[in-house]
């Protein structure tokens, strides 16, 4: 089992989906991200770990330009998606976000029916030509998010009526429905109970078949369980980046070691 995982890891690193070079982020006067260089592989789960306030979520939100919605935030450096700079003036963030989907810390289903929640993305992006096609996309997405069996009989019920874990999987289905290439997850399990967390983690592992997944987590165990690559952030710096197994068993940087052994956090 362990060996197999390692093999897969090596396959995953071959082609970089996202490349970040010398990324700097400023929030007003605060220098939130300093000189981050990282390559995120395709069909890989990459985990960002680090103490809270280390900039891991900020960096994640740079990858689909969600930081654009915050006035005081400025991003410098290059972030390339399939070799194209996503901060290029010609890039429409709307088009970008269709390719780079996002799942948030707190489950945030829209106050609509379960069906409409999932169909929202395909509708705005015009992915379905007619109702049967849309039905198909919704079903496929709900299946991929491993929630189909639980909700198939009540697609018209409001999404807000589901339990926390179901809501988060619904949000994942919603993100998957737009057929993104990269899926960003910002502490997707922090608001969930252990059982729901296990379900979502299992789901993340399956999603790796199709997408490049980047997950921010404050739980080292979770990073170890779901990711192939891990990046450790500390005070806005990317301290260490490498194979998950390496990071956890043989950290190079003393700060990484301190964090993993629980001395800082």
């Amino acid at each position: 089992m362990n060996d197999m995982a390692r093999v897969e890891r090596r396959v995953g690193t071959k082609n970089a989906k996202i490349t970040a070079r010398d990324v700097q982020v400023h929030y007003g006067d605060t220098h939130a991200i300093k000189d981050v260089n990282v390559e995120i592989g395709d069909k890989t789960v990459t985990a960002f770990i680090g103490p809270s306030g280390c900039g891991k979520s900020t960096f994640l939100r740079c990858l689909n330009r969600m930081n654009d919605t915050i006035d005081a935030c400025r991003v410098r450096g290059d972030i390339l998606l399939d070799g194209e700079d996503i901060y290029d003036k010609r890039v429409d963030p709307v088009q970008l976000r269709a390719k780079v989907g996002m799942v948030f810390q707190k489950p945030n289903p829209f106050p609509k029916s379960i069906y409409d929640n999932v169909a929202y993305g395909p509708r705005i992006h015009g992915l379905a030509r007619n109702k049967p096609e849309l039905d198909e996309i919704v079903e496929k997405s709900l299946r991929r998010a491993a929630i189909w069996n639980e909700v198939k009989d009540r697609l018209d019920a409001p999404g807000t009526g589901l339990s926390g874990g179901q809501q988060q999987r619904l949000c994942i289905a919603r993100a998957v429905a737009t057929e993104p290439e990269v899926l960003l997850m910002d502490e997707p399990c922090s608001a969930l109970d252990p059982i729901a967390t296990a379900q979502v983690e299992e789901l993340i592992d399956e999603l790796r078949q199709r997408y490049s997944v980047v997950i921010v987590t404050h739980s080292m165990q979770q990073a170890a369980r779901v990711s192939q690559k891990t990046a450790f952030f500390h005070l806005g710096n990317l301290v260490e980046f490498g194979e998950t197994g390496q990071i956890f068993t043989n950290p190079q940087d003393p700060r990484t070691e301190s964090y993993i052994t629980g001395r800082i956090g």
């Binding site: 689909n64 969600m66 919605t69 709307v94 088009q95 970008l96 976000r97 269709a98 390719k99 989907g101 996002m102 799942v103 948030f104 707190k106 945030n108 289903p109 829209f110 106050p111 609509k112 929202y120 993305g121 705005i124 992006h125 949000c171 919603r174 993100a175 737009t178 960003l184």
Partner: peptide
């Protein structure tokens, strides 16, 4: 809640789509 807007924007909706289809119904 801002989370509602983030959810929509994160899916690649424009601001006006977010306002009309998520914020207004809410």
């Amino acid at each position: 809640p801002q989370a509602m807007r983030d959810g929509s924007l994160g899916l690649g909706a424009t601001k006006s789509e977010t306002v009309r289809q998520v914020v207004m119904p809410a």
